[in-house]
Structures are given as C-alpha cells and as structure tokens.
Computed example of a mutant assay.
Amino acid sequence: MNSTKERLKERVKELTCLHEVSSIIVNADYDMLETSLEAIVKCLQRAWQFNEETEVLLTHEAYRITTRGYRSDMTCLRSDIKVFNKKEGFIEVGYPSGKYGLSDFLAEEQTLLDNVSLAVGNLFERKQIRDRETEIKRQMMRTDRLHILGEITAGIAHELNTPLANILGFAELLKDSLTDKAAISDLEKIMENAIFSREIVKKLMFFACEIPQEMKKIELNPLVDNVLNLLQPSINNKNIQLKKSFSHDNILIKADTVQLTQVFFNLIMNAIYYSPQGGQITVDINQRPGIIQIKIMDEGEGIDSKNEDKIFEPFFTTKPLGEGSGLGLSVVHGIVSGHKGTITHEPNSPRGTIFTIDFPKP
C-alpha cells in the first residue's frame, strides 16, 4: 500500500470502526449482550485492508462469536480481552493462511484491534458492575422486606400467645369435669389444634428473633449427631444414604443450643423430604480461619429459579397444602442472622440443592 490515497482510506476505515464500536458499546443492552458483540465483530471485519477475506473470532468466558468463514488455521492478529486486569477472552482477526502472511497486516490494524479489545473489556466490566449493583439492591430490598415481616410477625405472635394459653388452660379444666367420651374426644381435638397453633406462634417468634437466646460455647459435632439420630427413622424410610464429614473432632461454636438444633433439624428434614428414594444427603462441617462453615446437600429437584428469592420468606412453601407451614426456612434464616451468620443456597451437581451456613468462630 504505497499511495497516500490508499493509506488515507485505511485510516478512515479504522476510525469509522472505532466510532461504530464506541456507539455499539454506549447503547448496549446488558441483557442482550451477544447482539452487541456480533455487531462489533462485523465492524472489525469491515475495517481490515482486505476486508472481503477477513474473518473474526471473539471469545469470552460466556460467549463465542465468529464470522461465517472463520477457521482455526487462519493467519491471525490477536488481542486479549481483559476484565479488571484478568484475561477472560480474546479477539482474533485473520486472513486465509495459504494466501496471506503476518506481513500483510498493517501496524495500525494491531493498534485498532488492541483498542477494540480494551473497549470490549470495559463493556464486560460495566456489565459486572451493573450486575453487582442489581444483586446488592435485590438483597437490600429482601432484607427490608424480611425486617418488616419480622416486626409484624412478632406483634402477631405476642397477641396470639395469651388467647392460646387461655384456650389450653380452660380446655384442660373442662376435660377434667366431663364424662361423655365423645365430648372428651372433641375437646382433645381442640387442644391438639391449639397446641399446633402454639407451635406456629413459636416459629413466628423464632423468625422474629423474639425468643431470648442462651448463648454459650457448645460442641457442634455431637449436636449434629443428635439431630441425625432423631431423624434416622425418616432417613431409613426413604433408604437415603447419609454422608457426614467433620473437618475437626472438636468444633466449638458460640450459639443457643435449642435454636441451633432447630436450624439443623429444619434443613435436614427438608433435605429428606425433597430427596428421592435411595438418594444421598451430605452434611459437611468445616472449620476454617475465622468461620465455621456448614453445608447440607441433597439430590432432590432443586429450587426453581422463580422461587430463589422467596424461600426464606415466611409462609412461602412448595409443599402440598397441609404438609408445611412455610415457616421452616424463615425460622432458619432468622436464627442464623441472630447468630451473626449468613445462609445461602446454590444448585447441587448434577441435581439438588446445597445450603451453606457461615458462622463466625468464637
């Protein structure tokens, strides 16, 4: 390329490409990023000296976009895509290897490719920042919602405690004075339902952290073993394989024994309920620097993506009517938060759910 006119033509193509790429990135829809990346690849294809034979590959951890004629054996220029200084992909622009060599590329074309790769890396950085902001906002909204629900349920629980105690007390007195068996049977049903309602109120108070905590250092391993022994009949009924792992023989945690037992009981009971016949449940307790991490894994159907944000909300349940109050996981969340811990969930592989609890070490 010798003439001034030809050189000027190539510079115009390069500047046009940069302008178009910048416009694409400014107007990019982060939820449809592949469309923007495809447009960037097309811009690069037009910007090269022999554009009719130019092919482009853009690859990232989540994307792989090529022009129609791209082949892996082409003679190519390459530039890495870096996101927060970490290589996460690259862009290649190439010619057919039998017809062209590296000397056929212009020095300015490598500069152009580097600039486009930098711009694409910035696009991925902005997407990550947007996604993090969205996640933080979602978590804050959920925390606010749970806080409001906690205040409401605490008030309801306090209001219900007194009438329920009265119902049970007067029912006991009335039962002692009756002789009719049918009437006594009906009265016992009233008492059973009142006791059931009282347990719901207790769970509400757990959720609202209204039950006083008796915090002390306790050994975690025997507590977990006791819960598993209580649930052994349910485990045997479904022929579930139980895998238990403790990183240390003596793991100490500062907690309320009753509330921590409730946490393990609810999570393992849920794992049993959703596990298939002959499935496996894993309970893993790991002591790490600064934290005690608990993982409870099952091989059930897993949590539907549309329910991921709801499972810790009170009264939400996927169990059939009459099989769950929807308070189990909300109680667990309340207790864990009250112990300054965190609880998260993620899919198990190949199927199922993993609940992870992190408690601070005493």
Rank of each mutant, 00 (worst) to 15 (best):
E313P: 00
L329I: 03
S97M: 00
F124G: 06
D131T: 06
G150Y: 05
I343S: 00
V227I: 15
T162F: 13
I24M: 09
N85V: 00
I211W: 00
F84Q: 10
L18C: 07
S103I: 08
M297Y: 00
I200A: 10
G155F: 08
L231S: 01
I152W: 01
V224P: 06
K181R: 13
F264Y: 05
N85E: 12
Y63D: 03
M1C: 08
H147C: 02
I218H: 05
H60Q: 06
Q49M: 15
Q128L: 13
T179F: 11
T344H: 08
N226H: 13
N250E: 13
V283D: 02
S247I: 01
E199F: 10
I354E: 05
Q287T: 07
R288C: 00
K137N: 11
I218W: 03
T67D: 01
L174W: 05
T4H: 12
G328E: 07
H158G: 14
A154V: 01
E92V: 02
Q232A: 11
G101C: 06
T66W: 02
R11E: 15
I211V: 12
P276C: 01
F359E: 00
E308L: 14
D131N: 11
G98K: 11
H19G: 08
I65M: 04
E308Y: 12
K87M: 09
L321R: 13
V41N: 01
D131R: 10
E61T: 11
A255W: 03
K238P: 00
E61Y: 07
N221H: 05
S337N: 13
S36F: 08
H333R: 14
R198L: 14
N236I: 09
L77Q: 06
E38I: 14
L252C: 06
I195K: 14
I148S: 09
K127W: 08
K244W: 00
T317E: 07
E53I: 15
L57Y: 11
L260M: 09
I200M: 12
L37D: 03
S72A: 12
I285L: 12
K319T: 05
V224W: 11
E53K: 15
Q259P: 01
L178S: 04
M269L: 10
T317A: 07
A183C: 12
I65F: 01
R64G: 00
E20K: 15
H147F: 08
N85I: 02
Q293H: 04
E346D: 03
V332H: 09
T153P: 01
L146W: 05
F264V: 05
I218D: 03
I285S: 07
T66Y: 03
E172I: 08
D144V: 09
V201F: 06
V331C: 15
R7G: 02
G328P: 05
D225N: 13
N122S: 10
F246W: 09
A62R: 12
Y273N: 07
E38V: 12
I195G: 06
L321T: 14
M205F: 01
L178A: 05
